[in-house]
Design a protein around this nucleic acid. Sequence first.
DNA 1: TATATACATGTAATCGATTACATTTATCAT
DNA 2: ATGATAAATGTAATCGATTACATGTATATA
Lengths: 328, 328
Amino acid sequence: MSTATVSRALSNPELLTEATREVVFAAIRSTGYRVNKAARNLRTRQAGAVLVLVPNLGNPFFSQILAGMSECFGDSDTSVLIADTKDQAQSGKLFVDYFLDSQVDGMICLDGGLSGHELRQFSDNGLSDRIIFACEWVHDTCLPSVRSDNARGARLAVQHLFDLGHRKIAHVTGPQENVLTHARREGMLAERARLELPVKDDWIIRGDFSLESGRQAAERIIAMEHRPTAVFCASDQVAFGLMSTLSANGLRVPEDISVVGFDDIELSEYYVPALTTIRQDRRALGRKAATLLMECIDPEPVALAERTAPVVVDVELVVRQSAAPPAG
Amino acid sequence: MSTATVSRALSNPELLTEATREVVFAAIRSTGYRVNKAARNLRTRQAGAVLVLVPNLGNPFFSQILAGMSECFGDSDTSVLIADTKDQAQSGKLFVDYFLDSQVDGMICLDGGLSGHELRQFSDNGLSDRIIFACEWVHDTCLPSVRSDNARGARLAVQHLFDLGHRKIAHVTGPQENVLTHARREGMLAERARLELPVKDDWIIRGDFSLESGRQAAERIIAMEHRPTAVFCASDQVAFGLMSTLSANGLRVPEDISVVGFDDIELSEYYVPALTTIRQDRRALGRKAATLLMECIDPEPVALAERTAPVVVDVELVVRQSAAPPAG
DNA sequence: TATATACATGTAATCGATTACATTTATCAT
DNA sequence: ATGATAAATGTAATCGATTACATGTATATA
């Protein structure tokens, strides 16, 4: 019984006689033998792991996406390394190092804010075809990506507020250079224009998806001479920060101001008031990204169709209590 | 210039002449050489990675703990594998397999609910000294752990409510078999006894740390003949679920019922009303657990002091708006 | 039955580092 | 200056799998 036979029993069982295969497996069971992944990885030049880059692990928005990914990778014994892009500078380790050190075979990036410099590090090393973007993406590149229909989400939000009777609708955006910010803002503006709603510059308030930026937006709104009657927020977290500060200042949601969020994280249903928001199918986003990546890093890639077009996942309006007809 | 010299330049630079070291590093820089981790791992029988077991990645409570860990491991180029204990059954991969397949050197477990069966798999393979528990731990074992001072947190919460004038204090617990549930419940009961507060059986409400269990607790409370004037919740999430449902039923927090949580997750400050809660220093928990684990898996372990006593991290009362003097 | 062909298994090289041991070179004391 | 000792470097085995190639065995064909 040679080592080669054992190896084949594990990776290409169909090459062996039923009989020998049985013998091998019996021996494996009785000895408790386990393949050494390090040795296999060395020989096959694979890492059996993928890297997931998260902009902020602290944001509950990402959890379900990760769950969707684990679900897929779990099936193919690929392990998942998770890194927070915030920590990069501090740790001194570049993300491309994970590849160069043969620690991962591919990467899913949830952060569209990677610098051109970093992206070049990947392309310079011929790694661009082992990267999938999910949720966010990089503007003006054609790296494969999975994303929600952000523009449609924004339109749904505005439409809903319009249907409730709102005309003066504000928007708290995401961070300035973010692709989601852009997609949602443009969707919102387009719908507002289509419905011929009034426009005021200071009804577009710059935020950054965070609770704190919601608070700041609320302060801006409270100080306004002509307040909007409704606010569409670029994320649920922003909506929470906003509502919290509005309440603290005696403005009631939805009686005085209606609020709509974006994401539908678990907590949205349990906020006071329960948040009307746009649901992203986060688990599906994670699953699709994982599936795409597995195809990329498959040693014998199935003829990849032109994968330049992003995979788009549909969104959905979830009506709860934070948006109601305007007073008066 | 032999491969041995190069290898030494990387792992034991002090063995080389200043001159040769320079030559080696110069060559490394000019050729862009990188060590192959798989080869190193194979030879040194180390994985250069650790596994972190999280009970529920979706719970924002864990994020900062993970951040604290990454901070430590990032410095020592150990990579961090994160797995959700919920997914285990589904993926079919046992956690002990990560060790047996030489994929990780150690493990931090945030889930005290591991079955005796699973724990035995670790001890049977002599792996018990490569495991650190954090936040949660396993009752009746002396595996090293890092935890918050849960009993003290519970006492602080009850004391605070007492100081505000509350006498009828209820508690929503965590899941039945959870060690945190026990520690917090006992702390709460002890303090209630010390202050000679009234006791009613149905003021101890079974929960499971989740938003949904908070909602259910609220329904129970609303239906009570003798309602408590304050509720101490075993987690912030429970508090949110509770407050959301109280509000939906016309009970105001804190005017009608005061609420205190446990954890102080980021959102607590932005809830309506802002949640009075017990802060756990989650980042510190993560850092300490990581530090402990690194000592365990160090190839030349520093004489480990008796590490049976758990490392305890202090907690702190954060006063916000959800608890106020009772009406009347 | 002999020969060609397919199939199963064995042999040994290989992946890229680490490290025990051997060898060379430098340092020191006498 | 010489031998003893220490320090630096080189040689080659090793970690545990995979796999090209060689060999052996069964099946089919003439």
